[in-house]
Amino acid sequence: MLSELIQQFETASATYAADNGLERDDDWFVLKLQEEMGELTQIWNKTTGRGRRRGMSDEQLATALADETADLLGHVLLFAHRNGLDLAAAVERKWCFRPRGD
């Protein structure tokens, strides 16, 4: 399951990069993690009253929070894939379970 999910993110990211003329070099993957974490933090601050909502409703904030979390998840998986990291083994070591299907 995890390897299939990684491949889906890889395909989507490679297509997006090709369509927009982006080079996904080694630095790009870690910089995108930082960018997405910043965006997640910004929405979290708005959600928890630490940032300006700029007219966003509770529902819009919840949607944005989910969207930014999905972006971060995708970029974590892309980073792991780019660097040949065995996330299933790492999850087993760190969280004491093996993701299903891996």
Rank of each mutant, 00 (worst) to 15 (best):
L77H: 03
L85S: 11
T41N: 10
A90S: 13
V91Y: 11
T48Q: 08
T47I: 03
G49E: 06
R54G: 13
R98F: 09
D67L: 07
R82P: 05
V91L: 12
L5V: 13
L65D: 00
M37L: 13
D86M: 09
M1T: 08
H81T: 09
T48E: 12
I6T: 07
F97S: 06
T47M: 14
E59G: 02
K46H: 09
L87H: 05
N20E: 07
I43F: 00
H81M: 04
H75E: 15
F9R: 09
D102F: 02
G84L: 08
L22A: 06
L61G: 09
R93A: 13
Q8M: 10
L87G: 03
L78Y: 05
D26W: 02
E36V: 09
V76K: 01
E35Q: 12
R54W: 14
A66P: 00
L87V: 07
W44V: 12
D71H: 02
T63S: 15
K46P: 00
A12H: 01
N20I: 07
A89T: 09
R98V: 12
W28Y: 03
G74L: 04
T11P: 02
L22Q: 13
L73E: 07
L78K: 08
N45Y: 11
I6G: 02
L85M: 12
N45W: 03
L73S: 07
A14F: 01
S13A: 15
C96K: 15
L5D: 14
L31Y: 11
S57E: 04
D19H: 07
N45I: 01
A17Q: 00
A14R: 10
G51C: 05
A18E: 14
Q42M: 11
W28D: 09
W28N: 08
D25G: 02
V76L: 10
E59S: 08
T15M: 14
F9Y: 10
L22G: 03
E23T: 13
A62M: 13
D25Q: 05
R53S: 00
D71N: 05
E92I: 06
R52C: 14
D86R: 05
G51R: 01
W95L: 15
M37R: 02
V91T: 14
D19Y: 03
A88V: 14
D71S: 04
A70I: 11
Q8G: 13
V91C: 03
G49V: 09
H75T: 13
L33H: 05
I6F: 00
D86Q: 03
D19A: 10
A64C: 02
R50D: 11
A62G: 07
W44R: 06
R54C: 15
M37G: 09
E35G: 06
D67F: 03
Q7A: 14
A62C: 07
W28T: 00
G51F: 05
D102E: 15
N20G: 01
F9N: 03
E4D: 15
D67N: 08
W95I: 15
M37S: 10
L77E: 07
T48M: 14
H81D: 12
L33E: 07
A17I: 01
A90Q: 11
R100T: 14
L85V: 10
R24A: 12
C96P: 13
